[in-house]
């Protein structure tokens, strides 16, 4: 085929293109991921019984601030990465901020507590459940994020996949927070932070295969 023929054919398909499509798709995907994760978490795991008590609410707030912060920053980063060459114009360090904040808070809280409490503070009652639930809840949000990113044209597939994984892990942990009764900062730092990081790594590994265009 001659390139002229191709250009000819493509020019019949000229039509106005909305400039906001991409951002709208990603925002919708973010919202859909959040709703999917909440539904799965509520139906499969259920909401914690003591949700309305003060201590539970305080920790729910901490967990939500951490996870929503991650999702927000990751989505902003993602809107850059879905454009060709977007990886050259952004700095990834911003998405590390919520992690650094929670690690600092966890360290302070460990520092203030007697050493004999450290094990329970870090492991909680349900570390295994958290370790398994967050990645499981993240599957549907990950699929939605990947679908949205595929509307774009990322040129750094591993990094874009990683951030899609970060969004999925973030919304998943946010939804899981409604169920989780382990209320300590070191627990949130290790198991929420850890499982979200795991989702990010999985996204980085899958990105080059799922996002090719």
């Amino acid at each position: 085929m001659k390139t002229d023929e191709l250009v000819e054919m493509l020019s019949i398909d000229a039509k106005p293109v909305a400039r906001t499509t991409l951002v709208r798709t990603l925002s919708l995907a973010g919202a859909a991921s959040g709703i999917a994760a909440l539904v799965i978490a509520c139906v499969v795991f259920g909401v914690r019984a003591d949700l309305m008590e003060e201590r539970a609410l305080t920790f729910l707030f901490v967990k939500l601030a951490f996870t929503v912060g991650i999702v927000g920053l990751a989505l902003v980063y993602l809107t850059k990465l879905v454009r060709p060459g977007g990886e050259r114009r952004t700095q990834p360090f911003l998405v590390a901020l919520p992690f650094l904040a929670i690690i600092a808070l966890a360290a302070i809280s460990l520092g203030l507590a007697p050493r004999s409490h450290w094990d329970t503070m870090i492991l909680g009652d349900e570390w295994l459940e958290c370790l398994l639930s967050v990645p499981i809840i993240a599957i549907v949000p990950f699929a939605i994020s990947i679908w949205a990113v595929r509307r774009g044209a990322p040129t750094d597939l591993a990094r874009t996949g990683a951030v899609a994984g970060l969004v999925a892990g973030g919304v998943s942990a946010m939804a899981y927070a409604l169920h989780c009764t382990d209320d300590s900062l070191p627990f949130v730092a290790v198991w929420y932070g850890g499982t979200i990081a795991l989702c990010t790594l999985a996204g980085a590994a899958l990105g080059p295969r799922l996002l090719r265009w």
């Binding site: 390139t3 191709l6 250009v7 493509l10 398909d13 293109v17 909305a18 400039r19 499509t21 991409l22 879905v82 454009r83 060709p84 060459g85 977007g86 050259r88 114009r89 774009g152 044209a153 040129t155 265009w213």
Partner: peptide, 27 residues
């Protein structure tokens, strides 16, 4: 050329065109 056509909604009009085309070409 196909990518430029089908991915043209990923171009941000506030940015110069050359780096966008280059990123596609290099990819």
């Amino acid at each position: 050329v196909l990518a430029v056509h089908f991915k043209r909604h990923t171009y941000d009009p506030l940015e110069p065109l050359t780096p966008w085309v280059h990123a596609i070409a290099r990819y």
